[in-house]
């Protein structure tokens, strides 16, 4: 049992361990150990191309996570109020959005954008084209569904009488939403936000289709790997792993805090 569990962990984390280990290699070849050094981190962080890609990725991930959390939550709340076929239809659409492979979303959003841009660009003074905003739009499409599912699960598990108790205690519908519904949904909204952020941050396939001239971090890594894996890329990868880790711990702390006495 012990050995079995350890093998699973080794299988899961060994590749990440290699990346992190390789990032401290002083030599130029990622695969040949030549001594410990932090040089590659310095190089990575002083590489303007990497920093620009990182900024673009963070920007896309953040905007996407905020929009998905808001739209997804509103979707879940709205679906709570409709019934029958309308609800079944939207449920189906949500599941489809999640099940469709990334490459299909990539191709279809690309075609959609191209068609729409071709149609409206002659009518506008500004020129719409592929780029970070197109990536955000495509990511929000997928992540809204994820957030909606998470929030809906929480909503369905929520005791309906809590809303009634709030109304019974003179809170207006908006007051009830602000003081009861939102705080109770907060953990699932936050979880959705983090999932959306992570998904967007590490997405390569969809971004590759619609990013246009903008370069996200996964796109940068992919294009530089064609020139060989360098410890510099390992350093970037290690930083990404570390930041995801910090993000997860932060989320855990927030979730745990929400379980403690409030005022």
């Amino acid at each position: 049992m012990r050995l079995y569990v350890m093998l699973i962990y080794v299988f899961l984390y060994a590749p990440i361990g290699f990346i992190v280990g390789g990032s401290f290699n002083s030599g130029k070849q990622a695969m040949v150990w030549q001594g410990f050094s932090l040089d590659w981190y310095g190089k990575a962080f002083s590489n303007p191309l990497i920093m620009e890609a990182l900024t673009t990725s963070l920007y896309i991930a953040l905007v996407n996570a905020v929009l998905s959390a808001i739209i997804g939550t509103l979707t879940a709340l709205g679906l709570q109020r409709v019934g029958g076929w309308t609800r079944a239809g939207f449920d189906a659409l949500i599941y489809i959005a999640i099940m469709v492979p990334g490459i299909v979303i990539g191709i279809s959003t690309l075609i959609a954008f191209v068609t729409v841009f071709d149609a409206v660009n002659p009518l506008l003074s500004v020129r719409l084209e592929m780029g970070a905003w197109a990536v955000i739009a495509a990511h929000v499409l997928f992540n809204t569904a994820v957030v909606a599912l998470l929030v809906r699960a929480r909503l369905q598990g929520m005791d309906r009488s809590l809303v009634e108790a709030s109304e019974d205690l003179y809170a207006t519908p908006f007051g009830t939403f602000r003081q009861v519904v939102l705080p109770l949904l907060a953990p699932s909204i936050l979880a959705g936000f983090l999932l959306a952020f992570t998904f967007s941050f590490e997405d390569f396939i969809i971004a590759y289709f619609v990013a246009g001239p903008d370069v996200t971090l996964p796109i940068y890594i992919f294009s530089s790997i064609r020139r060989g894996v360098t410890p510099e890329i390992n350093a970037v990868g290690s930083v990404v792993v570390l930041s995801s880790f910090i993000l997860l711990i932060a989320a855990q702390l927030i979730l745990r805090r929400s379980g403690r006495p409030a005022g």
């Binding site: 009488s161 809590l162 019974d168 009861v180 409030a262």
Partner: peptide, 13 residues
């Protein structure tokens, strides 16, 4: 009203 399962707000003290 006093609800059957009390409906106390779990997120509040």
């Amino acid at each position: 009203m006093v609800f059957q399962h009390y409906a106390l707000f779990p997120h509040l003290a």
